[in-house]
Amino acid sequence: MYCNQRPEKPGNKIEVFEKITNMARANSLWVTAYGTGCGAIELRPLHTSRFDMERFGIAMRPTPRQADVLIISGYLATKTLKRVIRVYEQIQDPKYIVALGSCTINGGMYFDSYNTLNVLDKYLPVDVYVMGCMPRPEAIIDGFSLLMRKIKDGRAQGWKHYKENLDYYRENQKKIITDWDLPDYNW
């Protein structure tokens, strides 16, 4: 069942409530288990007893319906971007994007590839970048703690930005996805 209306503006929330909820959100980040590039290799050790991301309340969910965070783990092919947009829009608000590796920042070592996009921020709103090629698990945990700090302060508003500037993002997306066959509004 698709919605065929533009996304409505998120309404104002009671501030105290929102603060408590932000604490809860920061301490229970659920990640969509979806790896797009080689950086996904270094995500796996995060489950293990050595790095153990469950102690921050971070858990993997197999479906976007239940997740909060989408990790773009490295280079993104145009074909994958289509699926990623689909996944991102099915995640329920509020949602955050963590981008790993230099590929998502400026193309990295695939800057001249015919099939991988260079600047991810043009197509999807990124909340936290993690540097490195590829980032070590420690760096990813550091990125997550930055995300948690941003959420606690109420600064992780990428999803609102996406809704408000939907036209800009859609234009960019349609420019590189030449056979656009997704529903235009899909919430």
Partner: peptide
């Protein structure tokens, strides 16, 4: 590739960097 409109990308006369700069 989905919806590829250019010349096939692995041909050597295809300029990958120029394409990347133009599109991405």
């Amino acid at each position: 590739l989905e919806g590829w409109k250019d010349i096939p990308p692995m041909r050597r006369d295809f300029d990958s960097e120029e394409y990347s700069m133009r599109v991405f």
